[in-house]
């Protein structure tokens, strides 16, 4: 049994280790490995296309995570007071957003946005005060990636935060109201600290999803490039040691993020535990 577990961990980590090792390739070709040099690292970071793709991905993921967390948390808080058809409609839409494959979301967003832009652009041009030449044109780009990513991640945040709200001690909220706290005061001092871990988890999940997503961005990014799109096309062009360097840096980045999240959550948990124990 222990041997089996060890084998599975080898299976999970050997490919990652291989990529990291190959990023220290001294040779010029990715297919053969000569040990060992960091020569490819500075060369990779001089690649302006890569830096641009990375910056784009960070901006998109940051925006998506913020939007999804704020909107999803707002909806989750409101939904505890809603019953009847509105509630059912929301539940159904949330699960549809999660269940529909990402590729279908990508296609649907592409098709709908192109149709909408085709209808809106002439209208904007006609109404633009400076004449049709100077009128802005709506186009696929970061906006559409952010919009499409936010749909899925927002649904995810709703599910996570609602699970936390349902597990919360409702009597605390009643007590707070009995003690004449305003609804906003109750939210700030009672509800929010309790749902904070779920909100943070939702934020991190959303950021990671958006940063990692290839397929939705592939459809709706138009002429823009995100990091996964850049990596995909560089694999298609033929793997170079540079691809391995990018991969290693991305792995290091997500690992750092993961450890940071872990440390943050643990400190929070301990802080909350200490606060609760105090009389």
């Amino acid at each position: 049994m222990r041997l089996y577990a060890a084998f599975i961990y080898l299976f999970l980590y050997a490919p990652i280790a291989l990529i990291v090792l190959f990023s220290f390739n001294a040779g010029r070709h990715a297919a053969s490995f000569e040990c060992c040099s960091t020569a490819w690292y500075p060369r990779t970071f001089q690649n302006t296309f890569l830096i641009e793709a990375l910056t784009n991905s960070l901006i998109v993921a940051g925006t998506v995570a913020t939007l999804a967390t704020v909107m999803g948390t707002m909806a989750a808080l409101a939904l505890q007071r809603v019953r009847g058809p509105v509630r059912v409609a929301f539940d159904v839409l949330t699960y549809i957003a999660i269940i529909i494959p990402g590729i279908v979301i990508g296609i649907a967003t592409l098709v709908a946005l192109v149709a909408a832009f085709d209808a809106l652009n002439p209208l904007i041009a006609a109404l633009w005060p400076g004449g049709p030449e100077g009128a802005p044109r709506l186009n696929l780009g970061y906006g559409s990636v952010i919009a499409a990513h936010t749909l899925f991640t927002m649904a995810l945040v709703i599910v996570i935060v609602r699970a936390r709200i349902q597990g919360m001690d409702q009597s605390l909220i009643e007590a707070s109201a009995d003690l004449y706290a305003t609804p906003w005061g109750t939210f700030r001092q009672v509800t929010f600290p309790q749902i904070l871990p779920a909100v943070l988890a939702g934020f991190l999940l959303s950021f990671t999803f958006s940063f990692d997503d290839f397929i939705i961005a592939f459809f709706v990014a138009g002429s823009k490039t995100t990091l996964p799109i850049y990596i995909f096309s560089s694999i298609r062009r033929g793997i170079t040691p540079e691809t391995n360097v990018i991969a290693t840096v991305v792995l290091g980045f997500s690992l750092t993020l993961l450890i940071a999240a872990q440390v943050l959550m643990r400190r929070r948990a301990r802080g909350a535990g200490g606060g609760g124990a105090a009389p």
Binding site: L12, P15, I16, F214, I231, A247, S254
Partner: peptide, 16 residues
Amino acid sequence: PFWTSFLIRTYAWIYI
């Protein structure tokens, strides 16, 4: 591993 790039993890297998 699930939290690191799916694309990168898959492409490692092209080598293997």
